[in-house]
């Protein structure tokens, strides 16, 4: 792998007052990789995502995407460049029906550019994408207002919104949390399909079994610092990881 990385994060830091939420965090991500972020609660995983996607301004370090320094850019610019993210606590537009939630990302300038300057039939695209993530088409669940949808559908909606933006890098923040085993099992193939379609993916997960099955590589965070980085199996064998991660949490 001599090619230049898709994403190159170096010495990324974020201090909240005296608390080092993320401290000198560095990693490289190659195109097409599926990278997992794991670590105990409060270890800084979501903050790293917020730093990469522009939702939080870093205290130091830099984020290079395709050779371009995007550190501290506004979130909407980063999205338009091709990095999409989902939220751990689902954040749909609660007053809008599920498929209207999809129309907003489909209006993104990036989607227009990727489609060659035309948006196409957004309603149809929205319904197709929703069906793909498990909104059964004949149940009309896609027309329901988001505030009445159960958690499982809201998580799927988060994923569908991310896909709608046609990102090159998709960051999924604890997509599986709060889902049943059966629901997770039904989403895994969707992620694998995206990945074999060429999308680069970062997954923050507590559901380790499922993650290790699909991830190429795993980075372990603890107290805002990287304590391990490697193939799934190797990482789990590391004594430090066992102590920091498994010692403090059962999942």
């Amino acid at each position: 792998m001599s090619a230049s990385p898709l994403l190159n994060v170096s010495n990324l830091s974020k201090y909240f007052g005296g608390v080092k939420a993320v401290n000198a965090f560095s990693f490289k991500l190659m195109e097409g990789e599926l990278l997992g972020f794991i670590g105990p609660n409060g270890s800084g995983k979501t903050t790293v995502v917020n730093l990469i996607t522009g939702f939080v301004k870093p205290s130091g370090g830099e984020v290079i995407y395709r050779g371009q320094d995007i550190t501290g850019w506004a979130p909407y610019k980063i999205v338009r460049l091709g990095i999409a993210r989902t939220f751990q606590m689902v954040r749909p537009f609660y007053q809008l029906p599920a498929f209207k939630n999809m129309i907003i990302p489909l209006y993104s300038p990036r989607v227009k550019r990727m489609a060659g300057g035309k948006y196409g039939d957004r309603d149809a695209i929205a319904l197709d994408l929703l069906e793909e993530v498990g909104f059964e088409r004949d149940s009309f669940v896609a027309y329901k207002i988001a505030s009445v949808l159960p958690q499982g559908y809201l998580k799927r909606l988060e994923l569908a919104k991310g896909i709608a933006l046609q990102p090159d890098l998709l960051i999924l923040d604890e997509l599986f949390s709060g889902l049943s085993l059966a629901e997770v099992a039904s989403i895994v193939p969707i992620i694998e399909k995206l990945r074999y379609g060429g999308m680069t993916i970062i997954m923050i997960e507590h559901r380790l079994k499922e993650l290790f099955r699909i991830a190429d590589r795993v980075i372990v965070l603890n107290f805002g610092e990287k304590i391990a980085d490697g193939l799934s199996k190797e990482v789990m064998e590391s004594a430090e990881v066992k102590k920091a991660y498994l010692g403090s949490e059962e999942d």
């Binding site: 939702f55 999205v79 999409a84 749909p92 993104s108």
Partner: peptide, 11 residues
Amino acid sequence: QDERTALSLGI
């Protein structure tokens, strides 16, 4: 409805 979501969707 949600500025952060809007930002995450490229608005």
